[in-house]
């Protein structure tokens, strides 16, 4: 089992992370990677017409607790699916539009486990890991609100029994 969790300011190399998962070898048949990027606008689901140009996104987190929560999430994924490797990288600090912000990579024998686990880890990361985003919009700073859609996305895993 290859598990790698990192909270870091520096950028990551998707190719290097993919190669590391690919080197797992025995039984490997699928790798799913998800990369999240910083959008160049800020929108609000409850105000469909609202859209503002975003210049900077600042990521705060709770050191040590974040890593432990991410580790818990990965452990839960391991109990639900048959996995060979999981990589989670989340960046902190000041980011610009189009910057990479998060990477989830999952390796497994069959694709179903990797697809499902990657989505599960992202859904739980968004609703449970101690990160907070501050957007710099129109020359002003504002802490972003949590989205109901993210809570709903995470909640659906509560009802799904792994087959």
């Amino acid at each position: 089992m290859s598990i790698s969790i990192s909270v870091q300011a520096k950028d990551f190399d998707l190719g290097a992370e993919y190669d590391r998962l690919r080197s797992i070898g025995d039984g490997l048949g699928a790798i799913v990677t998800f990369t999240g990027l910083v959008r160049d606008f800020e929108s609000r689901p409850e105000e469909p017409q609202y859209s503002r140009k975003l210049t900077t996104l600042t990521l705060q987190h709770y050191p040590e607790m974040t890593e432990r929560l991410l580790s818990d999430i990965v452990e839960q994924a391991l109990t639900r699916w048959s996995l060979l490797g999981v990589t989670v990288i989340h960046r902190i600090g000041s980011l610009s539009p189009n910057d990479q912000i998060v990477l989830v990579g999952v390796a497994s024998t069959h694709r179903h486990d990797a697809f499902q686990a990657a989505e599960f880890v992202m859904d739980y990361l968004k609703t449970r890991a101690t990160f907070w985003k501050k957007a710099h919009v129109d020359g002003q700073e504002q802490w972003l609100d949590a989205k109901h859609s993210d809570a709903n996305a995470a909640a659906r895993w509560d009802d799904i029994k792994h087959d």
């Binding site: 999240g36 990521l59 987190h61 709770y62 607790m65 989340h90 912000i101 998060v102 992202m122 990361l125 968004k126 609703t127 449970r128 890991a129 101690t130 990160f131 907070w132 985003k133 802490w143 972003l144 609100d145 949590a146 989205k147 993210d150």
Partner: peptide
């Protein structure tokens, strides 16, 4: 003791 508003990472 830490006070944690709703998280917004990812």
């Amino acid at each position: 003791v830490a006070f944690l508003p709703p998280v917004t990472g990812g």
